[in-house]
Amino acid sequence: MELEVRHLRALCAIADSGSVRKAARQLGMTQPSLSTQLHRIEKALGGQLFFRETTGSRPTPLGHSVLCRARPILAEMRALIDEIAAATVRDRDTRLHIGSTSSRAVAGWLRRLRARLPGTDPTIRIDVSANALLQMVAVGQLDVAFVHEVEGAPLRVPEGLAIHELIAREPQFIALPITHPAAARPVVKLADLADDQWMVDPTVDGEWAGLRRIWTAAGVNPRVVHGDYLTAADLVAAGEVVTPCQPTSRPRHGMTIRPLHGDPLAVRLFMACRPDAPLAAPAEALFADLASSYHEIAWASTVYRAWLMRHEGPLPVAT
């Protein structure tokens, strides 16, 4: 067991209140759970930290030693939190913190935001976890987040966030070697890829569950290797794997991108923000810039443009 800040906070609460019962109440815990935690801490440190007496709990010599080190650490943590909070307040009017899962729309979004808000410095955080980005918006670490939600694998959207839906169902395409027999076809069936090795990034929220769902429905059980999608693109070009990809993805030498027959794999794209958060611009304006950027890259993709024309959209209106 490694000591964490919460453990140090618990020890100081017991020492300051003189009672496990009172400390538990202060920490929002039950007395049995705090007692169990204390026993684990003492076991990890190899000695008793408090004398249990009828009048309460008082530190042992070892306890005094631990507390002398714990209190400065907690004080430093409090100072760090206060400093970060103060910096956040200072930056609120001059910075726009946005987050996104991987998308080619981000570059154009940033370009449009800088043009719309010349006195603001937009910063971007890219993360494979849409759930993590949404949580960061909920707690104020990000102002807005643009994420994708794999069909059949709902995200954990924190209560109270405002959702601006960009695309209800964006089809996911397949990247395969140019030498693959199916590369000559305009649309590829999952059965055509049953004997191929697929590369999947299991750290992307919902990705693994979504793929297993469509494989099961199609009655295929392909070989799978795990890795990030940047590496996957190199291996596709080398003829080693096939991999799912966004319809706006750019093919590279040795690779081609094709739609999947029936569009079995899809994601929902949306922007999330806190409705009461002070933003550098109205959420509707930020969303309009995102929609315009997505429209730009969607129509620049030959394969996706052909798919959109066959299916008559839908795309966000370019502004």
Rank of each mutant, 00 (worst) to 15 (best):
V5E: 08
R6A: 15
A13F: 03
A15D: 03
D16T: 14
D16K: 03
S17A: 10
V20C: 05
Q26C: 13
G28C: 13
T30E: 07
S35W: 09
T36H: 14
Q37H: 00
I41S: 05
A44D: 14
L45R: 00
G46E: 02
F50N: 01
T55D: 06
T55L: 14
G56A: 09
G56D: 06
S57L: 06
P59F: 12
P61I: 05
G63N: 06
H64Y: 05
L67S: 04
R69I: 10
A70F: 02
A70M: 01
A70W: 00
R71L: 07
P72V: 08
M77L: 14
A79M: 12
E83P: 13
I84R: 07
T88C: 14
D91F: 08
R92G: 07
I98T: 04
G99R: 01
S103R: 03
V106D: 05
R111Y: 07
R114F: 07
R116E: 15
L117F: 09
T120G: 11
I124K: 02
R125A: 11
V128F: 12
A130L: 14
A130G: 13
N131Y: 02
L134F: 00
Q135V: 13
A138Y: 08
V139G: 04
Q141G: 15
V144S: 01
A145F: 03
H148Q: 11
E151Y: 02
G152L: 06
P154E: 02
L155E: 13
L155Q: 13
G160A: 11
I163T: 02
H164R: 06
L166N: 10
E170M: 08
P171G: 02
F173K: 10
F173G: 09
I174R: 00
L176T: 11
P181F: 00
A183W: 06
V188P: 10
V188A: 14
D192I: 06
D195Q: 15
D196I: 11
Q197P: 07
W198V: 12
W198P: 06
M199Q: 11
V200H: 05
T203N: 00
G206K: 01
W208S: 10
T216S: 15
A217D: 03
A218G: 04
V220F: 07
N221E: 12
P222G: 05
H226F: 15
D228V: 09
Y229L: 08
D234F: 08
L235A: 02
V236S: 05
A238K: 13
P244F: 05
R250D: 10
R250I: 15
P251V: 15
M255F: 06
R258I: 04
P259V: 15
L260F: 01
L260P: 01
D263N: 01
P264Q: 00
P264M: 01
M271P: 03
P275V: 12
D276G: 10
P278S: 12
A280V: 07
S292Y: 07
Y294N: 00
I297Y: 00
A298N: 15
W299H: 14
V303D: 12
W307K: 09
L308K: 04
E312A: 13
P314S: 04
A318N: 08
